[in-house]
């Protein structure tokens, strides 16, 4: 099923990119609606509407929204939205703002046998500080007791935190493992008590 869809999509792309042989095509107009500003980390709604020369909606047309992106030595247009217009001529989708850079959007309709290709652009400026959005949830955790190992980098000491436990952890980071520490302290103090009895046996045996 998936392969069939993929094959169909491939054919479609080929069809879209093939030079149009139809001489006189109707003009089309593409409008891209996006907020002018967005906050970092926010998910915004983006829509595009495709109409013909008379303003009547074109349905079933493929619209692709892309933005130029760059990562390491790779650069190019990354697809953000890819859909077909509904009977109102619209496609809509959501985009997560993951960078403080202004986001340049470009929507494109590739044209078909009836209509010419059309493009539209929008620019979203981003407000707010960049904070870590991606949160890894790692490791053996006891709620409220310890952080994930290595969550604070190479140092494996658990973070201090507030409250009594936090202050205890400042004294000894390994105390974040206090369930184990408590068991050990209990057992070892019983050992110590038994040893103290040994000293009392010794003194009880002393000749007057």
């Amino acid at each position: 099923m998936r392969r069939a869809v993929a094959a169909a999509a491939t054919l479609l792309v080929l069809a879209l990119s093939a030079p149009s042989v139809v001489a006189a095509a109707d003009p089309s107009r593409l409008a891209l609606t996006a907020p002018a500003t967005a906050r970092f980390g926010e998910t915004i709604g983006v829509g595009a509407r495709l109409t013909d020369g008379q303003g009547a909606p074109i349905s079933g047309a493929r619209i692709v929204v892309v933005t130029p992106m760059r990562f390491l030595n790779g650069a190019g247009d990354a697809v953000l939205l890819d859909g077909r217009t509904d009977k109102d001529g619209s496609v809509a989708g959501e985009i997560a703002i993951r960078s403080t850079e202004p986001l340049a959007l470009r929507a494109r309709f590739g044209g078909d046998t009836q209509y010419d290709a059309a493009e539209a652009a929008a620019r979203i400026s981003v407000e707010g500080e960049a904070v870590a959005l991606y949160e890894q949830h790692a490791g053996a955790r006891v709620p409220m007791l310890n952080q994930a190992p290595g969550a604070d980098g190479v140092s494996l000491a658990a973070g201090a935190g507030d409250g009594v436990l936090g202050r205890m952890r400042e004294l000894w980071p390994a105390l974040s493992g206090w369930p184990i520490a408590a068991a050990l302290i209990t057992v070892w103090s019983i050992f110590a008590f038994a040893v103290s009895l040994l000293f009392r046996i010794r003194s009880a045996g002393a000749l007057p």
Binding site: R70, A78, V79
Partner: peptide, 14 residues
Amino acid sequence: LEEDVATNGDEVVR
């Protein structure tokens, strides 16, 4: 994962 971007050297994807 932070910037939600990946590349294979040829193309960049969201």
